[in-house]
Amino acid sequence: MRRQSLDGRTFRPAGGRAGSGAVRFEFREDDGLVWATYRGGPVVVGVLAGVRDGADLRIRYLQIRSDGRREEGYSLNRLERHDDGRVRIREEAAFDSRGSDTSPVLDEVESA
Rank of each mutant, 00 (worst) to 15 (best):
R2G: 08
R2F: 05
R3V: 15
Q4H: 12
Q4A: 15
Q4E: 15
Q4V: 15
Q4S: 14
D7G: 00
G8K: 07
G8M: 08
R9A: 02
R9N: 05
T10V: 14
T10F: 04
F11R: 02
G15N: 09
G16A: 05
R17K: 10
R17Y: 13
S20K: 02
G21W: 02
G21R: 01
R24G: 00
R24V: 05
R24N: 02
F25A: 04
F25V: 04
E26S: 12
E26F: 09
F27L: 14
E29T: 06
D31T: 11
G32S: 06
G32V: 02
G32A: 07
L33I: 15
L33P: 03
V34A: 01
W35C: 10
T37E: 14
T37W: 08
Y38M: 00
Y38L: 03
G40Y: 03
G40K: 03
G41P: 03
G41F: 06
V44K: 11
V45N: 13
V45R: 10
G46M: 01
G46S: 06
V47G: 02
L48K: 01
A49L: 11
A49R: 02
A49P: 04
G50W: 04
V51T: 13
R52T: 05
R52G: 04
D53F: 13
D53Q: 13
G54T: 09
D56H: 14
R58P: 07
R58W: 12
R60A: 15
R60F: 13
Y61D: 13
Y61M: 10
L62Q: 02
I64L: 13
I64R: 14
R65N: 11
D67N: 03
G68Y: 01
R70V: 15
R70G: 12
R70Y: 12
E71V: 15
E72Q: 15
E72G: 15
E72W: 10
G73D: 04
G73M: 01
Y74D: 03
S75F: 07
N77W: 04
R78L: 13
L79Q: 03
E80P: 00
R81D: 05
R81Q: 11
H82E: 14
D84R: 02
D84Y: 00
R86F: 03
R88N: 05
R88T: 08
I89V: 10
R90M: 14
E92H: 09
A93C: 11
A93I: 07
F95I: 15
S100H: 01
D101Q: 08
D101G: 08
D101T: 07
D101K: 06
T102Y: 10
S103L: 09
P104I: 06
D107I: 08
S111A: 15
A112R: 00
